[in-house]
Simulated assay, not measured.
Amino acid sequence: MYNPLPLIQSFFAALALLVLLAGCATTPPDSVLAVPAPAQKYAAIVVDARTGKQLFEVSSTAQRYPASLTKMMTLYLLFEALDSGRVSKQTQIPVSDHAASQPPTKLRFRRGESIDVDSAIRAIVVKSANDVAVAVGEYLGGSEAQFAAMMTSRARQLGMTSTIFRNASGLPDGGQMTTARDMAVRGMALHRRFPQQFHYFSESDFMFRGRLVRGHNDMLGRVRGVDGIKTGYIRASGFNIVTSYNADGRNLIVVVMGADSARQRNDHVEALIQRSLSPTTDGAKTRLMFAEQ
């Protein structure tokens, strides 16, 4: 049987030598942008959130697994419920046996316990708690499957044309797919639709039941102006992130998917931010150097 893998690998090796983006102004020397491996999982996009202008993209419409970036949509529907008055920040969300049985990361609830909406938001943003995400989905949708259908429907309304949700958490499911472009659309929608709630995405820890729960979005505090949004990882996806930058009159949404490690992902996001803020960006030629497979 024909195996296309060697051809695909050769293609991405050759891609590292190509100039993917070129401007029409004066052209400074090429800049080299290190891209995390593996190339077949990689996708990225940078968008000016104020204008919607695309500043950078590679494979931004290719199908990818969202992993915990899924929880951004779970939160979007929860924020809508807050806005409509369906829930308040004090509303108690029961944690079912199904929700409590989700694999880590999670807060580890016992039978019959519940969590208030404010703490649930923080648990999903900071800890990426799978048990809490599923509990929210069951509470708002009646079941996790029904909530996933609601998520997909809302995604279509937002213009996320290539996204299908199967669960509320982003845990592995072969039918749950998205694109870097769709993740950028959702990041912008969260920022524009819920400015009063967006502060949650800047939090790197929170107190829950007397203990400090720390997060793992290391972009917070690393680059001045970064104010969220969400990380994600499953084995099939690699290391994903949607990052919001908001400083000095610039607002960017940066999506990187398929990195080989959190460190590579974060380094790449920082390089993309610096590139996008450079006054010579429009005239620069950027070569993508892929790490070894």
Results as ranks from 00 to 15, higher is better:
N3K: 14
L7K: 15
L15G: 10
L17Q: 15
L20A: 00
V32R: 06
A37H: 12
A37G: 10
V46R: 15
A49R: 10
T51E: 10
L55T: 09
S59K: 15
S60P: 02
S60M: 02
R64I: 01
P66C: 02
K71A: 04
T74M: 03
F79I: 09
F79Q: 12
L82Y: 13
L82S: 09
S88E: 02
S88I: 02
Q92P: 02
Q92L: 12
Q92W: 05
Q92R: 15
V95C: 07
H98P: 00
S101M: 03
R110H: 14
G112E: 04
V117Q: 06
S119D: 02
R122C: 01
S128C: 09
V134R: 15
V136D: 01
G142Y: 04
Q146G: 11
Q146W: 10
A148D: 07
A149V: 03
S153Y: 14
I164P: 00
L171T: 13
D173E: 14
R181V: 01
D182I: 04
M183E: 15
V185T: 08
M188G: 00
L190Q: 04
R193L: 00
F194N: 07
Q197M: 06
H199A: 15
S202W: 10
L212T: 05
L212K: 14
G215N: 11
G215H: 12
M219C: 04
R222Q: 08
V223F: 13
G225V: 10
G228I: 10
T231Q: 05
G232T: 11
G232P: 04
Y233T: 12
Y233R: 12
V242Q: 09
I253P: 02
V255D: 05
V256T: 05
A259Q: 06
R263P: 00
H268L: 01
A271G: 06
S276A: 15
L288F: 14
